[in-house]
Design a protein around this nucleic acid. Structure first.
Length: 321
DNA sequence: GGCCCTCTTTAGGGCCTT
């Protein structure tokens, strides 16, 4: 009902917001918390990739607290309070947007005592080339659960979809008036995420192969549409955890693909594979298993699986070889 | 494209994402 109200407000019935019952993050990481609302996060810095300025640097030994997400009971009211002006305010004109180089910056001087909202996400695209291809579907799941904890929508890429055989998303499905284009979707997406954030808090996005795939695609879409990624959005690649699980002694994990992880942990597939929300559901459960196997607290997760350098720097390093 | 591994490091191949 509230979701309907939200979309009525935004005239976006084409997007879907659902309730995700329960929070596995709470259950799995209870051992890292002293109290229901006062999880200790020892370090956020070294492991989180952000987009705001400054050089790539590590932050060490900084303590912070995370208040695990509580159900946002008043989301309907929050969304209803969003005004067009607030939507417009999230739009940042970029006078010079000639470069599409991806610059990942490690969080610097970030106040990590701020509460964190952890969102698993996945994108389906029209192909693998980040410069030429576009996002055609995106799905998000806030691991804190509660009402409106998931968001998913198809996206009209305004270009040919050549890989329908992979995800089953055809041009007929996205080339429809009710399917938003990215430039229309971005402010909605930003506001949805904002509705999941705790006051003054930050957001950690996790996806499989985030660093090399979902993140660059997302950045390119934002830049193409003359938006900036909010400075309090941070990213983490779940594939790093998969490598650690595979490398662990006695592990029988055959590969670090999401499918192998799903089979390894005997997680049933709900929906079609290679559809964004289905993959998000799988990754959310895989994350639970991997962090358990690796005995990772949230702070440990963040400490050990950081982005430590920019993609641009990596490119320079590679080219210099 | 980024990451990891190795038959490596003055490099190259395979995996993963769609």
């Amino acid at each position: 009902m509230r979701a309907a109200l939200c979309f009525s407000h935004f005239q976006l019935s084409r997007c879907q917001i659902h309730t995700f019952a329960g929070s596995w993050w709470k259950k799995v990481h209870n051992f890292s918390r002293k109290g229901e609302n006062s999880s200790k996060f020892q370090s956020l810095g070294p492991n989180i990739c952000s987009l705001h300025g400054g050089h790539s640097k590590r932050l060490n030994n900084i303590e912070g607290k995370n208040i695990i997400s509580r159900r946002v009971n008043n989301i309907g009211q929050q969304m209803a309070n969003l005004t067009q002006s607030s939507l417009n305010s999230s739009r940042v004109e970029i006078s010079e947007c000639k470069s599409v180089h991806i610059e990942q910056k490690i969080v610097e001087n970030e106040d990590i005592t701020k509460p964190i909202t952890i969102i698993v996400f996945d994108t389906e695209t029209s192909g693998l080339k980040r410069k030429d291809d576009r996002i055609i579907e995106i799905a998000l799941q806030d691991l804190s659960g509660g009402e409106n904890s998931t968001f998913q929508t198809l996206v009209n890429p305004d270009k040919i979809v050549t890989n329908s055989n992979i995800h089953g998303i055809s041009e007929d499905m996205v080339d429809l008036p009710e399917v938003p284009r990215m430039e229309a979707l971005i402010p909605i997406l930003v506001q949805y995420v904002k509705s999941r954030q705790k006051p003054g808090g930050q957001v950690l996005f996790i996806s499989h192969n985030c660093k090399s795939f979902d993140f660059p695609f997302l950045i390119n879409e934002f830049r193409r549409c003359f938006y900036e990624i909010p400075s309090d959005w941070h990213f983490l690649d779940a594939m790093s955890l998969a490598r650690a699980v595979k490398k662990a002694e006695g592990s029988e994990l055959s590969s670090i693909s999401l499918q192998s992880l799903r089979e390894y942990y005997k997680i049933p597939l709900i929906g079609e594979a290679h559809r964004a929300m289905a993959d998000v559901n799988v990754l959310a459960q895989v994350l639970q298993k991997m962090t358990h196997d690796l005995k990772l607290t949230v702070s440990g997760l963040l400490k050990s699986y950081a982005f430590t350098e920019t993609i641009d720097n990596s490119k320079k390093k590679k080219n210099s070889r």
